[in-house]
């Protein structure tokens, strides 16, 4: 079974982003970039499926700037077999990304497609579901457990009230949630080996997908800040303040 994992290059999750003074976006100059944490969980899950003998090949794909090769090399060092970069410098919306991935799916014909449930920059949580509509495949979003059984995959999903399990016909799409697994670190020998693994670079044009979008970002602002209040000395003082000052209890 071939597994395709989509990964996105995003600002590292430890970076505190700052909004640009002209409100055109956030300042990403000289900021550390990494693989989106949810995508990393997707790569880890695919590699575990390969280690269990269920997956035969793990292909990673990224859609983004030339520098996204760095994240693809990381995925190769973690154990993916080969990588595809759809090189594009524009900021793409989820629907366009889903259309590009659909074109890659048509070429690669994977049985399982793993994506992160959302990217920590745009926070859209859309691409996997959109790819589901475009391919006509079933989707298991926000997965905390993935079990391939014959021609089906059982996906346990984190939902508002608890957990839900669905059985999906393969090929299927899975989007990862935080508790699916804990990604490993790449070892130095594997990082060296990854440099020799195949990485193909293609363009949106070659896939026949237009990158136009109907959504425009007008401005980006810093959120309203909350200022620190007061420190109380005791539980009694706290209860008194909540009752008489804040009037919330």
């Amino acid at each position: 079974m071939k597994v395709l994992v989509a990964v996105k290059r995003v600002v590292d999750y430890n970076v505190k982003v700052r909004v640009k003074a002209d409100n055109s976006g956030v300042d990403l100059a000289n900021v550390k970039m990494s693989m989106n944490p949810f995508c990393e969980i997707g790569v880890e899950e695919a590699i575990r499926l390969k280690e269990k003998g269920i997956a035969t090949e793990v292909v990673v794909v990224s859609i983004g700037p030339n520098a996204a090769q760095e994240q693809l090399r990381t995925a190769l060092a973690l154990g993916a077999d080969r990588a595809i970069l759809v090189e594009c410098n524009d900021e793409l919306r989820s629907l366009t990304v889903a259309k590009l991935l659909k074109a890659v799916v048509d070429q690669e014909q994977p049985q399982l497609i793993m994506l992160g449930k959302q990217a920590i920059d745009s926070d859209n949580n859309q691409t996997g579901q959109m790819l589901g509509a475009l391919t006509g495949y079933a989707q298991g979003t926000f997965a905390s457990k993935v079990e391939v059984a014959g021609d089906k995959v059982n996906v346990t999903r984190e939902i508002d009230g608890g957990l839900q399990t669905v059985a999906l016909n393969l090929p299927a799409i899975v989007t990862t949630d935080l508790r699916l697994n804990e990604p490993r670190y790449a070892s130095l020998p594997n990082i060296m080996k990854a440099k020799k693994k195949p990485l193909e670079i293609i363009t949106p044009d070659s896939l026949g997908v237009s990158t136009a979008s109907t959504v425009t970002t007008l401005k980006v602002e810093a959120p309203a800040t909350r200022s620190a209040g007061i420190k109380v000395k005791s539980v009694a003082e706290l209860v008194e303040k909540l009752k008489n000052e804040a009037k919330v209890i």
């Binding site: 600002v11 505190k16 982003v17 909004v19 956030v26 920590i120 920059d121 745009s122 926070d123 959504v215 425009t216 970002t217 007008l218 401005k219 980006v220 602002e221 810093a222 959120p223």
Partner: peptide
Amino acid sequence: IYAGNAIATV
């Protein structure tokens, strides 16, 4: 966006 560290008008 960015986990609430920025607010985008779209």
